[in-house]
Design a protein around this nucleic acid. Structure first.
Lengths: 335, 335
DNA sequence: TTGTATGCGTTATCAC
DNA sequence: GTGATAACGCATACAA
């Protein structure tokens, strides 16, 4: 493997000069620069970033921790992170944690051992205290999911408000018996959306029944199972609020299996406005999050932290939006 | 930041000894080991991997290049890669290329500059020649998608055979006018599946019509648009083969919009057996790929290459499987 | 504008 | 079993 020394020797200059050419510094005579560049070309030299990283003590790499690659919600979020990262000369790498604390810690070691310059958490399994401890020494940001008590910057929507908004939509359509399919892993977003759901019920004078909330695994199967159980409620709902689109679709699948008409006999609302929501039949009413902006903002906060521009903790709240489609109100019938 | 020297000083030993403790070498007296470990604990020392990586000239990191995070096909593939990687002490990082050659080259620089030990391509945009050149000097493997001419190991299914299998299924159901929604980015898998499709037609004595193949963007919208065009064919198909599940679902959405009954008036078959295929209504007939094994095998090949165990190029072909559901043949009616 | 020399933090090769 | 020391490849302060 040819290194900077070889180049220097071949070009008849010092390694310092080669380094200057490599880093595009101005203080190199045009003739020298050209000569060095030719040698680099001829030798097929590729600079070894391990050396540079050690010397500079930075890697220009950002690690994004996802609970799961297959969650379609995150693709656009990551895109936002990547765009902002790349604009600033950072590479973005994505790793799966599967909500496994052990794995999360393993990846966190990449930060502690200086292999990445910063980490964005999208679904922390570490405790708030543990996160705070990490945040004291290293640049981290929480995106979309977060630990309330973690002393670290974060960006998300207002999940209480969003849960309220979804439930309110159902209530305004005349529903008074409303089920909810939430997450059994108790992520903070799920808990907050439940709060919003209960708030809307209370405000409308509806007495909450615990059988109306089914905690399930994220994904199609969770929505499917939760709905089957909801259908066995003592007081059977006429509407279902699922905390993700794919859970909502699992829910609708279960309803179809029972020959329950959507939305006539059961209205369904999801969350995230992922690609499938407009494609299902019936098209799914859902709450949209500004996914790209969530990612872009998170990366922005992180880079500020890395550069040391911003010391204090920031909490950014972005706006959500209700997207009304056929699964709660059949437009064709109204027209 | 405390380093190995600080630890050595505080423990009253040499850096060599600390390093031995860190790397779990046997030739350290139990008492010394304990003493050093206590100091490490007390000082909260974290070993800086930049130094180690430079010294060892390896990073134990593998880069996986995806065309797109949101493609649900890859989540299980990556899981296979991660599992095998982790078992062997390697971290797996995933990056998006968006089929952008510039970005792919940028990420490839991570390999050339020794920041990662190997790369797995899942959708190469580089030419076969360029890939061959890279493969000469660095460990790379192609997974699922590949360039025919690249002199590099690869693992995939037999896409010609899979395309044949899908089409054959439709023919056996009595269809003679069969449309195909393929990819406009001309990935090799798409081209091969088209070959299989044409082979099946020919074998059945059906004359292929060019209007029957619609090249579209990957994704829901592509399937939707392609189907709308297929419906305007001079000789309108009674069955559609889409090269991905999400294209097939976009296709079914378009059919529903036109009030065309599935599968009675139009049968639809997809590809990949992703989660949504069983959840849609009607449930989608599709070709399943052994996704986890594809990933696991690819990582296995790559690690062999990195270790220098296996010099010659390997082409592994894994088995696909036809999953019959309601979108091609309504079981309820048959029973 | 260029060269010399030092150090980034670690591992590994010698000695002892 | 342990210590001294030389790399690994690069960037940079300082000198020229």
């Amino acid at each position: 493997m040819t290194n900077i020394q070889d180049v220097a020797k071949a070009a008849g200059v010092s390694v310092a000069t080669v380094s200057r050419v490599l880093n595009d510094q101005s203080s190199v005579a045009p003739a020298t620069r050209e000569k060095v560049q030719k040698v680099i070309q001829d030798l097929g030299y590729e600079r070894n970033l391990l050396g540079r990283n050690l010397r500079r003590s930075e890697t220009k790499m950002i690690l994004v921790l996802l609970q799961n690659l297959s969650n379609p919600f995150y693709s656009k979020v990551v895109q936002g992170m990547e765009d902002v990262g790349h604009q600033n000369g950072y590479n973005v790498m994505v790793c799966n944690t599967d909500l496994d604390e052990q794995r999360e810690k393993l990846y966190l070691d990449l930060l502690k051992s200086k292999l990445v310059d910063g980490v964005i958490f999208t679904a922390p399994t570490l405790s708030g205290a543990a996160l705070s401890e990490v945040a004291k020494h290293y640049p981290i940001v929480q995106c979309s999911e977060y630990k309330e008590k973690a002393q670290a910057s974060r960006v998300s929507i207002d999940n209480v408000e969003a849960g309220y908004c979804a439930t309110r939509h159902l209530i305004e359509l005349g529903h008074t018996k409303i089920g909810m399919i939430s997450g059994k892993n108790r992520l903070p977003s799920a808990i907050d959306r439940e709060k919003g759901y209960k708030k809307a019920l209370k405000e409308a004078g509806i007495t909450f029944r615990s059988e109306w909330i089914q905690n399930e695994s994220y994904g199609f199967q969770g929505g499917f199972r939760g709905t089957k159980r909801l259908l066995k409620s003592e007081v059977k709902p006429t509407a279902i609020f699922a905390i993700s689109d794919i859970m909502a679709i699992g829910s609708m699948k279960a309803l179809k299996e029972e020959d329950i008409s959507i939305p006539r006999e059961m209205a369904v609302i999801g969350f995230d406005n992922t690609g499938i929501s407009g494609m299902y039949d019936p098209a799914l009413t859902t709450i949209a999050q500004p996914r790209y902006e969530l990612g872009a903002t998170a990366m922005d906060l992180l880079l500020q932290k890395i550069r040391g521009e911003e010391k204090k903790i920031q909490h950014k709240i972005l706006k959500h939006e209700l997207i009304i489609r056929d699964s709660t109100t059949r437009k064709k019938l109204l027209e």
